[in-house]
């Protein structure tokens, strides 16, 4: 009985997944009737409602990659640093305080991060850097980075704390300092968990929608600097889908973007799985 229920549950999940993939492809592939795949992926001109329309998504792909890379540049040192502190350095008391606070960051809804970016960060950046607009790749990266920190931090911390105690003791016994032990013994031993956490953080950042709609600026261009606005793929899909005519080329193009996004996250997940699998062997 119990076996039956759990089996049905897992089967249902798989069916839903395949349903989503099937819809994605059946709605997304028809765009190739209107534009060839090379232009779709390599042209930076995105004018979907113009006549004649341009369906090039390169600027959207670049937009996604720029904000995601920026987010990771911020989140990796912060997340990894706090993971090392919590797992290796902090005493029990400070560990008990800091850990839940960092994890609290993960519980804040993304629209709240977006509001913070629009109302506080963007005007602040205009004043500090003297840039014309505060809605750009840089501010989106900062906010996304803060959102990704708890993912990297808590997963890396888990990985670090599963490293056997005797490895550390052996290292100290050989006369290594605490710093040398962390960098040369503990981190390499926890490598796969740390890499996995970064991959998950990447997935979170590239898939995040609300924050980039609100703060990335939404300009479909290849940015010349990080202070220029960009239009990540998720922002384009979410803000244009609501008002496009179902079955129009624009509609199919948005699904086409979703396929590209799906492939990017799918490949990242594969790499993560691979890293974990290697560890188990």
């Amino acid at each position: 009985m119990f076996k039956g229920i759990t089996y049905t549950a897992s089967l249902f999940t798989i069916i839903v997944l395949f349903g989503i993939i099937a819809t994605l492809f059946s709605e997304g592939l028809p765009i190739l009737k209107h534009v060839n795949i090379k232009d779709f992926l390599t042209s930076p001109n995105w004018h979907p409602t113009h006549f004649p329309a341009d369906f090039g998504i390169l600027s959207l792909i670049v937009g996604s990659l720029v904000v995601t890379a920026g987010a990771l540049i911020i989140a990796i040192p912060l997340g990894l640093g706090s993971a090392i502190y919590i797992s290796e350095i902090a005493g029990t008391r400070s560990k008990e305080i800091i850990k839940p606070i960092i994890e609290l960051l993960a519980g804040i809804p993304s629209v709240v991060y977006g509001l913070f970016g629009m109302a506080f960060l963007s005007p602040f950046l205009i004043k500090v850097f003297g840039i014309p607009t505060g809605l750009n790749a840089f501010s989106a990266s900062i906010v996304l980075g803060v959102m990704v920190v708890p993912i990297i931090s808590s997963m890396s911390e888990d990985a670090l704390s599963t490293v056997p105690r005797n490895l550390r003791e052996a290292s100290f016994a050989l006369g290594a300092t605490r710093w040398e032990t962390i960098v040369q013994i503990v981190l390499p031993a926890a490598r796969s968990g740390v890499v996995g956490s970064i991959m998950l953080g990447f997935g979170r950042a590239i898939g995040e929608t609300m924050v980039v709609i609100m703060i990335a600026g939404g300009a479909a261009q290849i940015p010349k600097s990080i202070f220029q606005p960009v239009r990540p793929m998720t922002a384009a899909i979410a803000s244009e889908m609501g008002e496009t005519v179902i079955g129009s080329p624009h509609f199919h193009a948005l699904f086409g973007i979703a396929i590209v996004l799906f492939f990017i996250t799918f490949i990242t997940n594969l790499i993560t799985e691979f890293v974990f699998l290697k560890k188990r062997k």
Partner: peptide, 17 residues
């Protein structure tokens, strides 16, 4: 050009830019 999702977002952004 910045492309924003709502009338409100446009007014809020202009007020700070």
């Amino acid at each position: 050009a910045l492309m924003l999702a709502s009338n409100n977002a446009v007014v809020t952004t202009i007020a700070t830019t």
